[in-house]
């Protein structure tokens, strides 16, 4: 396990280097003069040229690239026009809010999606199964921001039950995390349903029945363990979607996370900020995948001694 963790952790800086490189050249190809943007709309030509020299943008491309990479690895993400300096501290300050939102969404997914899938599977082709499956299809067909808007329209505007924006207190978390998790809940419910139906046909379930165990006990004690293996993988893979979804949902409910900050960066044409946030997203995604792999080994005994 320690060796496995070590191997995976070592690869993360290399993936990060690749991402930094790709982002650097993409933003070099984007039209627009970063020196003019950094100097401001009212700057004279002389001021723009002075800014260009100050930011090192007059250097050859290779020199700029090497300086950029070295900078990133010591925590200097370049000159953000929004923050008039290194955007890293501002990005990191917003990470906890996004983690809170994503964590709540994953918790909702596990607490709602998995039981819904199991309920549908154990009522296979009867009305609870049909009701759950129709809901799932509905949730999968609708974009998350629309669900968010509906939730705000009814839960806060119409009925005044919950705050519609900001992150003051746990109640404010409900609408954005529901909107963010809706699609994932539906996906996990559908996958879990299929997996449980498949598992229920397996020989070990028949053995458990031959032992005299009741259906409910078999589900909890035998089937659930086997269902968790593929389900954890699905949830892990979908966290990428979760991070992407947070961009829209955070803006929708004014949640002060990095997704919201990314949109600010894009609308300000703040290259350094967008590059920095993208890198944080990528590293976050890699770390989540690592956690999933560790969990996977924990749940699946067949991998533990491999």
């Amino acid at each position: 396990m320690i060796r496995f963790l070590g191997q995976r952790l070592v690869t993360i800086p290399f993936v990060a280097l690749g991402v930094v490189t790709i982002l650097f050249f993409i933003f070099k190809a984007v039209p627009g003069d970063p020196a003019a943007l950094a100097a401001g709309a009212t700057a004279t030509q002389a001021e723009i040229e002075a800014t260009r020299v100050r930011l090192g943008l007059d250097q050859p491309l290779v020199v700029q690239y090497v300086n950029h990479v070295l900078g990133v690895f010591v925590g200097d993400f370049g000159y953000s026009t929004t923050f008039r300096g290194n955007p890293l501290p501002h990005i990191l300050a917003r990470v906890p809010a996004t983690l809170e939102l994503a964590g709540a969404a994953i918790a909702l997914t596990i607490l709602v999606g998995i039981p819904a899938g199991i309920a549908a599977a154990s009522a296979h082709n009867r009305w609870p199964d049909v009701a759950i499956s129709l809901t799932v299809i509905g949730l999968l067909a609708v974009p998350n921001f629309w669900i968010g808007m509906l939730l705000i329209a009814f839960l806060s505007v119409q009925w005044g039950l919950l705050p519609s924006f900001g992150n003051a207190g746990p109640l404010a978390l409900v609408i954005p995390s529901l909107a963010l998790a809706a699609r994932l809940i539906a996906l996990v419910a559908r996958m879990t349903r299929g997996i449980v139906i498949e598992e229920l046909r397996k020989d070990y379930v028949r053995t458990a029945r031959a032992k005299g165990m009741r259906r409910g006990a078999i589900l909890v004690r035998h089937v659930l363990r086997n269902v968790m293996i593929p389900t954890v993988t699905i949830i892990g893979l979908q966290t990428g979607y979760l991070l992407g979804g947070s961009v829209v949902i955070e803006r929708l409910s004014a949640w002060p996370g990095i997704g919201d900050l990314l949109l600010t960066g894009v609308s300000n044409r703040d290259f350094a900020l967008v590059q920095g946030i993208t890198l944080v997203f990528v590293v976050g995604f890699l770390l989540i995948n690592l956690i999933v792999e560790v969990l996977y080994r924990f749940i699946n005994p067949r991998l533990r001694y491999a």
Binding site: D203, Y204, R206, T207, A210, K211, N226, I229
Partner: peptide
């Protein structure tokens, strides 16, 4: 089942819970 009547299946590879 299991108490008064015992049952042995054909497939030893799959009749036990792998987890």
């Amino acid at each position: 089942r299991g108490a008064r009547i015992g049952l042995i299946f054909q497939e030893p590879m799959t009749s036990l819970n792998p987890t």
